[in-house]
Structures are given as C-alpha cells and as structure tokens.
Computed example of a mutant assay.
Amino acid sequence: MEKFFNIKCRASGLRPNAVVLVATVRALKMHGGGPNVSAGAPLPKEYIDENLSLVAGGCRSNLRKQIEIAHLFGVPVVVALNVFMTDTQAEINLVCQIAKECGASEAVPCHHWAQGGRGSLELAQAVNEAASRTSNFQFLYNIEMPIVEKIRTIAQKVYGADDIELTPEAKAKIDYYNQQGYGSLPICMAKTHLSLSHMPDKKGVPTGFVLPIRDVRASIGAGFIYPLVGTMSTMPGLPTRPCFYDIDLDPVTEEITGLF
C-alpha cells in the first residue's frame, strides 16, 4: 500500500478514492499472539477453533495499525474479511465490530470463495459508498526531502520504528546517489512482509526497535531508490530445476528453444 501510494501514484497521477484492506481471522489470530505455523504441518487448534481473545488481540494491534497507515494518506478504508469455513460467526462479528471502532469506514465479511461474485456484493456496495466520499489523498513525504529522511519517515510513520541505522556502505551509496542527481527519487523499501518490523517473527505491532538499513541500491530505469532492510534478499525464488536449464540457442539457425 505504501509503495503504491508513494511510488505508483506519484508517477502515474492516480489518486485513490478508497483502500480495500483484506483480512482473515487466522492472520489476525497470529498477530494476536497465536502460535507459529510451519509449512506442511497441521494448523494449531487455535486457528481452527473459536478463539475470540486472539482475534481481538490481532484486531486491536495489527489491523488497527494497517487502518492507521491508510489514513496517513487521507484515504478511507473498507475492511474485507475473507471468510474461511472454520471461522465462527462470533469471530466474524468481532472483526467487523473492532475494525469500525478502529476507524474503518466499513467492514464486511466476504464469501466469494464459496458463493462466487454473489458472496462479495456487500463488499462491492461498501467500496462504492466509500469511494463516493471525498478523498483527501496526500503523499507521506515530500519527494525533495533527503534520501535518509524519506527512509526515516517511512520507518517511523509506517513501520513504527524508533529510528533507522545505516551501515557505512549504505551511507556511502546515498552520498553517491546524491552526487549523481538521484536524490529526488521515491523510496521502495525491501523488507520482510511478515512483520511491520525487520524481524519476521515479531507479529502484531512491534515497538522499541531501530530499523537496520544494510545497503541502499538504485533502480534508475524504474525510478526509485531501494534500501535493503536487515537480511532481506532481492534474489528471486527459483524452483528445484529452473527453466533456464532447458533453454538453448541453436548456433546454426539462431533459434531459441525451450522457452515454451
């Protein structure tokens, strides 16, 4: 959301009228203090059985923060609760109730998985109503701010960090980009999506942390500066046998094989 607003909207001229914030009961339970989930292992019972305490904890921490982030940009929020078969009516009602208490214009359960388009009619109506209101969209930072201050603004206002810490390499890169005239580019943070912080295991709304900036790189063609936060890697994920093993060039015909 932050990247879309600060980069995409700035470059394209788009001005959003509403944010659709998708939530699930299971994710909110995790942010509310639920146990870790391991790939391939059965889900802990907390995510299958009704647990209003975990749901409330996730809503009053992470969901509230996500709504607040959208409001930083002056855009109304509609919470779309993606309903699972294991969600109870009490859990669904609680999410919608707390979401509205936290500032959402509306919060609606969505049943499109089971009912197709009919299952999201209420969501469509809520989004239409929210988008019809006046939006006071604004960017989070002035594009002419120094690179360091733009990074710090995102870290503090969006992630909730106390401050940022740059390595000598990151500082040197920033100095170089400034010398080359790239200081007015927007920022695209390369950070784990599993937490508001740089620590994937810290759920809810982590506090009291300093965001470590390991390196700062530039994608001049794309038009942004991207800091690497913590141990974040920019390497793409590849399968066990990448497709490039089967791609070849015939030196006689100059035809490429194995692309499709």
Rank of each mutant, 00 (worst) to 15 (best):
M1I: 12
M1L: 15
K3C: 00
K3T: 03
I7S: 00
I7G: 01
A11F: 13
G13C: 04
L14C: 02
V19I: 15
L28R: 03
K29A: 05
N36W: 08
Y47I: 11
Y47A: 07
E50W: 06
V55M: 11
V55H: 09
S61L: 03
I67S: 06
I69C: 02
A70T: 08
L72E: 15
L72A: 01
P76T: 13
A80I: 08
A80F: 05
I92H: 01
L94R: 10
V95N: 04
C102I: 01
A104M: 10
A114M: 09
S120G: 11
S120Q: 14
E122K: 13
L123W: 06
A124C: 12
A126T: 05
N128R: 11
N128D: 08
S132H: 12
R133L: 12
F137S: 08
L140W: 09
Y141M: 04
N142P: 00
E144A: 08
E149W: 09
K150P: 04
I151R: 01
I151W: 01
Q156H: 03
Y159E: 13
E165C: 04
E169F: 07
A170L: 08
A172G: 02
I174N: 03
Y176M: 11
N178H: 10
Q179I: 02
T192Q: 03
L194T: 03
S197G: 04
H198M: 03
V210E: 02
L211F: 06
L211W: 07
P212R: 10
S219E: 06
A222F: 00
F224C: 06
P227F: 10
V229W: 09
G230W: 14
M232P: 00
T234R: 05
M235R: 12
F244T: 12
F244L: 13
D250F: 05
P251L: 09
P251K: 08
E255H: 07
I256A: 00
G258V: 03
G258W: 13
G258L: 05
